[in-house]
Amino acid sequence: MSFIRGYHPDTLREIVDVRECRERLEEIGNQRSLPALLERVWLLKVTGELDDALVVSDQSVRTARMAGTRKDLLRARILHATINQERGQLAAAEQELTACAEEAEGQGWAGIAAFAYQHRGKVRLDDQDLDGGRADFKRALFLRQQAGATEEELESTLLAIDAVDRRRVASVVAG
């Protein structure tokens, strides 16, 4: 079940029904499986509970290191980076996402690499690096196409490219 109802046209943040997300958090409770931890991190992030999200995210990275696969660890690290982004720690988020994208591409895991580039593009957008953000979104689009991504995943990347282009036009008009 997807809780995402859309994406904010400028910030590219997920638009969710907070009530549904909180209900799902209650259902998950304190389950300690890696999938449950990762879902809790994301739900806490989108409901704005960033301190709790960071604690659970740290736990998910440790769990993935001890009991998960390399892919699991990359997913946990990417999600952890998005928490840093939400907390305004853009340099730390970009550094982590860069490392994850490079490792995933080196392993030939296009879907995970695309996920990392998509989020690094959002970090760069937050940091007003429009060229870097656009390049990351274009790379994510290419990798998602290569990996046979869903229409929804491709659409979110196309929306991100469009958001960068709108910002570029707005900055030219304002400048």
Rank of each mutant, 00 (worst) to 15 (best):
D17K: 04
D17I: 10
R19A: 10
R19S: 03
R19P: 10
R19F: 09
E20F: 03
C21W: 06
L25H: 06
I28F: 05
I28N: 07
N30E: 13
N30A: 11
R32A: 12
S33C: 07
L34A: 07
A36L: 01
L37I: 04
L37S: 07
L37F: 04
L38M: 11
E39S: 09
E39L: 09
V41H: 06
L43D: 03
K45N: 06
K45M: 15
V46G: 06
V46L: 06
E49Y: 06
E49T: 04
E49K: 08
L50R: 08
L50Q: 08
L50D: 14
D51T: 11
D51P: 13
D52P: 10
L54Q: 02
V55I: 04
V56E: 03
D58G: 13
D58V: 07
S60Q: 09
R65Y: 01
R65K: 09
R65C: 08
M66D: 13
G68I: 04
K71E: 14
K71Y: 08
K71N: 12
D72I: 00
L73E: 05
L73Q: 12
L73P: 08
L74N: 03
L74K: 07
L74C: 08
L74W: 02
R75W: 01
R75V: 09
R75Y: 02
A76G: 03
R77P: 14
I78V: 13
I78F: 10
L79Q: 15
H80Y: 14
H80S: 07
A81V: 08
I83V: 15
I83H: 01
Q85M: 14
E86N: 07
R87H: 07
R87W: 14
G88I: 03
L90E: 15
A91R: 15
A91K: 13
A92V: 15
A92C: 08
A92D: 14
A93T: 03
E96S: 13
L97Y: 13
L97C: 11
T98G: 12
A99S: 10
A99Q: 14
C100T: 04
C100M: 03
A101F: 12
A101Q: 06
A101D: 10
E102H: 09
E102I: 09
E102K: 06
E102P: 08
E102Y: 11
E103I: 05
E103D: 10
E103Y: 13
E103K: 05
A104K: 04
E105I: 00
G106F: 01
G108D: 12
W109V: 05
W109K: 02
A110I: 01
I112F: 09
I112V: 15
I112M: 11
A116D: 01
Y117T: 00
Y117L: 01
Q118M: 06
Q118D: 15
H119R: 11
H119T: 04
K122D: 14
D126Y: 06
D127G: 12
D127C: 12
D129M: 00
D129P: 02
L130G: 05
L130N: 03
D131I: 00
D131W: 00
G132T: 05
G133E: 10
G133Y: 09
F137K: 06
R139C: 12
R139M: 14
R139A: 15
A140W: 02
A140K: 02
L141K: 00
L143E: 15
R144Q: 11
Q145K: 15
Q146L: 13
A147L: 02
A147V: 03
G148P: 05
G148I: 00
G148T: 02
G148W: 00
